[in-house]
Design a protein around this nucleic acid. Structure first.
Lengths: 240, 240
DNA sequence: GCAAAAGTGTTAATCTTACACCCATGC
DNA sequence: GCATGGGTGTAAGATTAACACTTTTGC
């Protein structure tokens, strides 16, 4: 049992190790034209010319790790009231050509039709999640990992309502689930399973101007709207 | 669309950000005396005098993130053939008094009766997971998060066999599940559920020197023994 | 009246849970 | 023979999966 050292002493002895950069990367999902999309930016690194990458940024020295993806989202989309979930941290030595960067991946679900939404950069655009080939860095693996976690989360937890307008029909909701899961669902079973979860409020309104029998409109139960900002180490998907 | 910059250029402009240290913390679980234990070390920081902390270390500048917990495990326990799973990354500004340190938490399951096992430091010791109060840093939260993930993982994936000797009875196995989950299980249902998973090989041997009817001995199916070293972004729990 | 999607219920199969008695061993 | 835990099956309930016809609207 040696001498206790102060934190200041320890910091000095470890100075050499303060040379890994920490970033976050956001897999920002949206839903458009009946497809799951992800927001990507044209890489501005020569090494990845022509490739797209996820939206990310270095974590500031005075910024909580969990704050960083909210900042990235805000900066890139204008949105702040979003669902965000930490997925995994990637830290292989060679993953970033600029130097040693480890990155924590988050996924989020945003509504690109929200009035606050705006893309502030020409090189940022939506891409269908299927039909993505190669991305810059290890971002394809990050994307795949996040998509898998999204699929695991989505039937258990009420996280998709960000993707929809305030009022929506069950058909619209089912379309989203099908797009996310990549499979078709039985309409009757889907509705039953959903009703049991008690996530929806029946608005007693109907669709209008549809060329078929109009469906009922629903909204998400207000108590589900607590998006995102609970401490991430607590399973915020359980915050119902 | 501005000029493309080289990685080298980018590195220079971000130099200021290379001042966050990255660590890993290992929640090393074991099973002794019918209880789930965790390996802790007496904190050598004055700020946490008298408290215990998880075993962790800074990630080396030339070390993959995923390598670091294996190194910590090896250094602290002599073990290398272990199950390891990344859980979450914690990065609040104030979490470490020595400076800005973000940490990625892993849990592992080790057998403290393995012939390779040895603790190389006097201040390192096993503690029952229940009856833990306060730990140094945010390590109590990290521990709780890892325990939750362990509990989620354990019924779905064959990860507990590290905790047992080569040959074991179903009772021993059930005791472990009960210790991990913190609940009692029905013997018949437990056995049925387990047999369906096809994780076990019946050794056609019996316990000896027990003061009651001897139970059959089993071992883990050899193909399950691929512990740990698959890339962590792939769900290695599925590697069966 | 036709096209398009909404709405709705039942059955079979599967999975989960609860539960009790006889058996093999050491002493 | 008694104490200790080993080994086993069944029935009820809950959950999931498959499946088809009638209704309402716009045109």
């Amino acid at each position: 049992m040696g001498q206790l050292k102060t934190a200041a002493t320890e910091r000095r002895s470890h100075q050499d190790f303060f040379n890994i950069a920490v970033s976050v990367d956001c897999v920002i999902f949206s839903y458009q034209d009946k497809a799951l999309k992800v927001l990507l930016i044209k890489s501005d690194l020569k090494e990845f010319e022509g490739l797209y990458s996820l939206l990310g940024d270095l974590v500031g020295p005075d910024e909580d790790l969990e704050e960083a993806p909210y900042r990235v989202l805000q900066e890139r989309t204008g949105l702040h009231d979003v669902y965000l979930e930490q997925v995994h941290t990637f830290g292989n030595i060679g993953r970033h050509p600029s130097g040693r960067v480890i990155t924590t991946a988050y996924f989020s679900l945003v509504n690109s039709k929200s009035s606050n939404f705006q893309i502030t950069h020409d090189d940022v655009s939506w891409h269908p999640v299927n039909s993505l080939k190669k991305l810059a860095f290890d971002h394809k693996i990050i994307l795949d990992t996040c998509l898998k976690q999204l699929r695991d989360a989505v039937m258990e937890h009420p996280i998709v309502f960000n993707l929809l307008p305030e009022k929506f029909s069950l058909r619209e909701l089912q379309d989203i689930y099908e797009a996310i899961l990549g499979i078709e669902l039985d309409r009757r079973n889907f509705r039953k399973r959903l009703m049991v979860k008690d996530w929806l409020v029946d608005l007693a309104e109907m669709e209008e101007d549809v060329p078929h029998r109009p469906g009922k409109l629903y909204k998400a139960r207000p108590s589900l709207k607590k998006n995102g900002r609970a401490p991430l180490h607590i399973d915020q998907r359980l915050v119902v």
